[in-house]
Design a binder for these strands. Structure first.
Lengths: 167, 167
DNA sequence: TGTGAAATTAGCCCGTC
DNA sequence: GACGGGCTAATTTCACA
């Protein structure tokens, strides 16, 4: 089953909302929050996990607390004919300890890389030594991050039909 | 205590690594993975939570699985003198159900907004009706996301001194 | 502060509706 | 598919080193 074919009912949506707010909520409390029996809740969560709606659980870490107070978004354009170098570029970027995420995008730029560094000096070294020195990098812009807000829990779209069959 | 003052020893670092890989790992297994007793592990994790190193736990959801297969990064420039409008803009963007995150940045643009939509048509409507129609938005570029890679677990910087006092 | 053991609690696998 | 019971296993608390 492809994850995109999964039908979600209102209970599933409530479960996803709660698990995004607190990924370690006890099954008992989760069941109470969404109004079903704990045993049923185990089934629901297991199915959401199995069908790929829930891809995993993670602890959120404060970058500042672990010595990485400087964050930036790097927009990168690669050379027009650097296609054979694109995959190695992604591998390279992912291997950097400063890398939080890499997006391959269409638009004015080709890649957007989110990084977290120990200082502005480290950011400078990262940009110069790990990015602009590479031949496939044609242009790079640094967007220093002042502050970040995360959105609310991601809710399904379009609004699910409560009467829709589960699958 | 400020989170940035927290000193982390190698055991803490190992705990953070494991909890980023699997935020719902059982305390018993976590303790075994990092080589301490389960009861000690409870204390360690509680302290990391209390001191702000761990800011929370969350379930990772597949946007495709909940009907939001189209993701984009929107780079936004605001009008030079729109300062009084900046905070309302952030509030507005955060209130959109499509918004995953908002970054206030320095550089060529002022904001970078990560959104997930149900279709390219929805993205179009989002950009036109929720962004470019607002007076404080001077310029917007859409970077459609082809694919995303997440980096490995975020590790502390600089490498912690094993002999360093905890606090 | 870390550890080990006891008491409490939650999670999981049944059967039944 | 949802629910409740009963067993297993985990978490938490406490006294001690």
């Amino acid at each position: 089953m492809s994850a995109k074919d999964v039908q979600l009912d209102p209970v599933d949506i409530a479960i996803l909302r709660e698990l995004q707010k607190d990924g370690r909520i006890a099954n008992k409390d989760l069941a109470a929050a969404v109004g079903i029996a704990p045993s049923t809740c185990v089934d629901r969560v297991a199915r959401l996990r199995r069908t790929g709606v829930i891809t995993g659980y993670t602890a959120q870490i404060s970058p500042e607390a672990i010595g990485r107070p400087i964050q930036a978004l790097l927009t990168v354009q690669v050379q027009p004919h650097a296609r054979p170098l694109v995959d190695p570029f992604v591998v390279h970027v992912r291997s950097l300890p400063e890398t939080l995420s890499v997006h391959h995008v269409a638009g004015p730029d080709d890649f957007v890389v989110h990084v977290a560094c120990g200082s502005s000096q480290d950011l400078q070294r990262l940009v110069l030594d790990r990015f602009t020195s590479r031949p496939e990098v044609a242009r790079l812009q640094t967007h220093l991050i002042f502050s970040t807000w995360n959105g609310g829990p991601l809710s399904p779209y379009p609004p699910q039909d409560p009467a829709a069959p589960r699958r």
